[in-house]
């Protein structure tokens, strides 16, 4: 289990509430498989309220990846939808929940964002 992944879920648990998940309700389990061992994180979303635990419960949606890949996803260096299309990440269950959860993942670490001329002038 990588540090970034742990940090990501810890932070999610501390946040407790995420307005971008106001419309989401359900349980998402993350399975990180390495050899014979699988780590689990369970996120319970109830209209924005978040609870994170490390139990292997049945869930509406199960997202499976390698621990390495999720470590990259957790810091924005890899992208969930591209990974899903590539087959490096798999999803079973409610696909809409995946899209909703995906939106709260970080963007690319060194993204420039829109270049604004007037900001530059002001500097």
């Amino acid at each position: 289990m990588g540090e970034a992944t742990t940090r990501f879920f810890d932070e999610l648990d501390r946040r407790g509430y995420e307005p971008r998940l106001e419309k989401a309700a359900g349980t998402v389990r993350f399975d990180f498989r390495e050899d014979a061992h699988t780590d689990h994180w369970l996120v319970v979303v109830d209209h924005g309220t978040l609870k994170v635990s490390r139990v292997d419960h049945e869930a509406d949606t199960v997202i499976s990846t390698s621990p390495e890949l999720f470590d990259e996803i957790a810091v924005g260096r890899e992208h969930v939808i591209a990974a899903l299309l590539r087959g490096d990440l798999t999803v079973t269950g409610n696909a809409l929940l995946v899209l909703q959860i995906e939106r709260i993942l970080p963007g690319t670490p060194h993204a420039r964002g829109p270049r604004r001329d007037f900001v530059k002038e002001a500097c």
């Binding site: 899209l99 993942l105 690319t108 993204a111 420039r112």
Partner: peptide, 10 residues
């Protein structure tokens, strides 16, 4: 549902 949520230059 797919509205942008963060910065991604690519």
């Amino acid at each position: 549902a797919l509205q942008g949520a963060r910065f991604d230059d690519f």
